[in-house]
Amino acid sequence: MRPASFVLVAGVLSAPFASSASASTVSVTLPRLALAEYKRPYVAGWIEPATGGAARSLFVWYDMKKAGNEPGTKWLADLRSWWRKSGRLMKLPANGVSGATKGPGTYAIPLPADLTPGHYVVSIEVARENGGRELVSVPVSVPAPNGRASGKSELGAVVVSPR
């Protein structure tokens, strides 16, 4: 556990999405896949109350620049759960939520600072062109969210850490 924590902290600090040190974060690892043709996946994360209720998007990474007959927004619905629970109710691009697609690596995303204490589920969903789709959910408790899970194919570790 110790070495893993150390690696995690390093990842958080080096990630472009690292925010103020006081915030809780979810770190997401996109694995490097040995493929002849690899397109950066669409990825979304959200948090929702464990007992049900409105989902809140944390981030969505998609092709924001592609326009024309088949714009990048066309494949947002491939993030099936996120699209149903949150994406289709949002106006995109959304400030602080939308971002460009990212390659393999570990990224840390801050959780909202204004969550009321209670039980939540943090979910990360990935969909890749000509690839798979994977959903990983981590149950956590606020104010000290702490948990981890791992995907099998499109997602590596998903780690929620308290401030």
């Binding site: 714009p71 927004t73 947002l76 619905a77 149903r84």
Partner: peptide
């Protein structure tokens, strides 16, 4: 062919 779509003019 599909029931949920994102974007416009699908």
């Amino acid at each position: 062919s599909s029931t949920n779509s994102s974007g416009e003019n699908n």
